[in-house]
């Protein structure tokens, strides 16, 4: 590798590493893309929702996520008041755990309550405690026979025990594997050469070509007589 080529490669590498570090710090330290905070819907009722005793009203961003874990059951307390004068029936309370904008965990409770009222939804994602970790958005909803009356979203930072989840282990192994794969690109073994390589054009090379076809008639001379020994067909290359 010439000096110019090496310095050019080093320059590319420096630029790439700088870009990577810049991107990492920008993404990791500040929310480059503001999370879509869904404010409480201005529907036919107002509600106060407590997630494990914490009011979710102040936890609508990633930075203010409620720290929790799924090592046991948790409760979500809904307390609502209709904004209108008429009676309003609520039939379901539900929470949805989102990932990539899709619900990956749902817990709901059905009931029939009229007017200002409250309901405590008990949820248990214990079976997924080794899978879920990180920041997730949860949408809490009150509805009446499928019609959403109130919904509010908030963020939770689910922390698994010792951060040692199956997903993390797999991801870390994957990272190590990819680093090894790249490092292995620089390792190229010289193929072993056979101990005794026949000289080119020698007996081994010409023997198959000079083997005559099976004899069909009995009159001809024996193949062994008509064809000189392969070793005698030509002197070893470089000989004489």
């Amino acid at each position: 590798m010439t000096v110019a080529r090496r310095s050019r490669t080093f320059g590319y590498l420096t630029v790439a590493v700088t870009l990577a570090l810049l991107a990492f710090f920008v993404l990791a330290t500040s929310p480059a893309l503001p999370p879509p905070v869904r404010a409480a819907s201005s529907g036919p009722l107002t509600a106060t929702i407590l997630f494990d005793g914490v009011n979710i009203a102040n936890h609508g961003t990633v930075g203010s996520a409620i720290v929790t874990n799924f090592s046991g059951a948790f409760s979500t307390a809904f307390t609502w008041t209709p904004t209108g004068t008429g009676g309003l029936t609520v039939t379901q309370a539900e929470i949805q755990l989102l990932f990539f904008g899709t619900a990956i965990g749902t817990s709901s409770g059905a009931f029939l309550k009229l007017g200002p009222n409250s309901y405590t939804l008990s949820s248990d994602f214990t079976q997924n405690r080794y899978i879920y970790e990180g920041v997730y958005e949860i949408v809490a909803t009150l509805s009446n026979n499928g019609t959403t009356l109130y919904s509010q979203s908030f963020f939770v930072w689910i922390q698994a025990t010792d951060h040692l989840t199956i997903v993390n282990i797999v991801l870390i192994l994957l990272l190590i594997l990819e680093i090894y794969e790249v490092a292995a690109l620089g390792r190229m073994k010289v193929p072993k050469q056979p101990a005794a390589t026949p000289p080119s054009g020698g007996p081994a090379a010409i023997a198959p070509a000079t083997t005559p076809p099976p004899s069909t008639g009995g009159g001809g001379p024996a193949p062994a007589d008509s064809t000189p020994p392969a070793g005698d067909a030509s002197p070893p290359s470089g000989g004489s």
């Binding site: 990180g134 920041v135 922390q159």
Partner: peptide, 8 residues
């Protein structure tokens, strides 16, 4: 997973 990015 460690809480620095929002994919949800």
């Amino acid at each position: 997973q460690f809480g620095y990015l929002d994919f949800s």
